[in-house]
Nucleic acid binder design. Structure first.
Lengths: 212, 212
DNA sequence: GGCGATTATTTAGAAGTGCTAAATATGAAT
DNA sequence: ATTCATATTTAGCACTTCTAAATAATCGCC
C-alpha cells in the first residue's frame, strides 16, 4: 500500500522535475539553480550549508550550483559577517527579478491542483504536512518551517469550523486552507509543545476525515 | 494556495530524490538508472521511446541511461521483433535481481506513509490519483495505468462501503485502499466511459470527505 | 595564548544527466 | 521509388552529483 503511494508521489515528482526543466530552460536555469534561487529569495542571505541541507545534496554540489548562479550574475557570495569561514549568499537585483519570475510556476501541476475543491485542497495540505513531518522526524529533510511545529501555533482552539486554529504571532484565527508549510515567521516549538500540538491537530483531523 | 501545495509536493520530491541517491549508491545505481530498471521490470521488454516518455526526458537522455545500464550488464538491447528501427530493452538475470532488490525502498518516505491510518492512506491515494489524472490530461505525463481510466473499472457499484468498486477484469469488488495507480492489466477506457467513470468516482469521494 | 578537533567551503576527478542539433536507418504512404 | 515520418544514436556542451582531499577559520580546552 505504502509502496503504491510512494510510487504515485514519485510519479508526481517526475512530472515536477520535467516541468522545472522546460520552465527554467527559457531563462537559462536548471532545476537545481531555480531551487537555489527560490531558497535565497525565501530566506534572505543564506549559508552554503543550509542550501545543501535544504536541497538534500552534498556541500560540493551546492557549491557548484551557487558558482553557476554567481557566474550568471544572479547571486553574490559575500563573507558572512559572523563567521570568517562561511559565506552569505545574496541575490543581486537581476537575481531578484529572475527569482520573482521563476516563482510563478505556470504549471500543469498548479492547474491540476486548482481543479480540486477547497475541501480537497485542505485535506491534501494536511496530508502533505503529515508526510513532511514524518520525513523530518526521520532526518530525511531538515526542519520545515510549518505551522505544526511552530511555537506560535495553537490548533483547534476556536469553534468556527472554518478557522479553528490560532496564530499567536499575528494573533489571528485561521483555517486548514491557510496552514503554512514554509512560514517566514516560524519559530521552533520545544519538543513538549510540538508533540502536544501535533496530537491535538491530528485528533481533530481524524474525526473529520472519516472512518477508521 | 496551489502554490503552497506545489511547494509541499516539491519538498517531498526533493526528499525522494535524496533517498533514491543514497539507496542506489550502495548498488552503484543513479536514481535515473533505478527508475529505468524499475520500469523495465514492471512493463517487460520496452521501447526506448517509452522509457523517455515515462521519465519525462528526451530520447537522447534515455539512450544514455540505458547504455549505462547495458555497460553494467543489467539490461540488454535487442532488436524489436516488429520494428527494425526500434529496440526492445530486456532485463538480464543480474538486472532482474537488482531491480527486485531496488524495488523495496526501505525509505523514510515509506515509514512516514505507514504511520498514517488506513483511512488517511485511502484519502491520499484518491487525491494523488486526482493529481495524476490532472497531469496526464494536460500532457505532462503519459497515460498512467490506473483504475480510473481503465475499461474494466466500475466505481461505486456495491453497497459495501469497504469495497464499493468492481474490477471486471478479475471480476471482484474492491475498495479505495486497493485502487491501483499502475496496474499490469490496465486497458484504456474510451473517452466517454472514462469521463462517466470519473464523474461517478469523484462524486462519491466528495460526499465522503467533507464539506465544500 | 596556543594546540588540536571541528566546521565551512572549495577543488579535483570521475561518471552521469540532460539538452539541442544533426546523423542514420527503417517504416509508411503516395 | 520517392518522400515523409519515426526510432535511435552520436557529438558537443553545461551542469549535477558523488567522493576524497585541501584550505581556512572557529571553538574548546589546557
Amino acid at each position: 500500500m505504502s509502496q503504491r503511494l510512494a510510487a504515485g508521489l514519485a510519479r508526481i515528482g517526475v512530472a515536477l522535475r520535467g516541468q522545472a526543466w522546460t520552465h527554467g530552460a527559457a531563462r537559462g536555469l536548471t532545476p537545481t539553480q531555480a531551487q537555489v534561487l527560490a531558497l535565497v529569495r525565501a530566506r534572505g542571505p543564506i549559508r552554503l550549508t543550509v542550501v545543501a541541507d535544504e536541497l538534500a545534496v552534498t556541500p560540493a554540489t551546492a557549491s557548484a550550483a551557487v558558482a553557476a548562479l554567481a557566474r550568471k550574475g544572479l547571486v553574490e557570495k559575500r563573507p558572512a559577517p559572523d563567521d570568517g569561514r562561511a559565506i552569505a549568499i545574496h541575490l543581486t537585483p537581476a537575481g531578484r527579478r529572475e527569482a520573482q519570475a521563476s516563482a510563478e510556476w505556470p504549471d500543469a501541476l498548479l492547474e491540476a491542483l486548482e481543479e480540486m475543491s477547497p475541501a480537497e485542497q485542505a485535506v491534501l495540505l494536511r496530508l502533505v504536512g503529515t508526510i513532511i513531518r514524518g520525513l523530518q522526524e526521520r532526518g530525511a529533510i531538515p526542519i520545515q518551517r510549518m505551522c505544526v511545529g511552530c511555537r506560535y501555533f495553537r490548533p483547534n482552539v476556536h469553534d468556527d469550523p472554518g478557522a479553528p486554529h490560532h496564530c499567536d504571532y499575528v494573533d489571528a484565527p485561521f483555517g486548514d486552507l491557510d496552514l503554512r508549510l514554509d512560514c517566514r515567521d516560524f519559530e521552533s516549538a520545544d519538543a513538549r509543545l510540538g508533540a502536544d500540538n501535533w496530537q491535538r491537530f491530528v485528533a481533530y483531523a481524524r474525526g473529520k476525515e472519516g472512518t477508521s
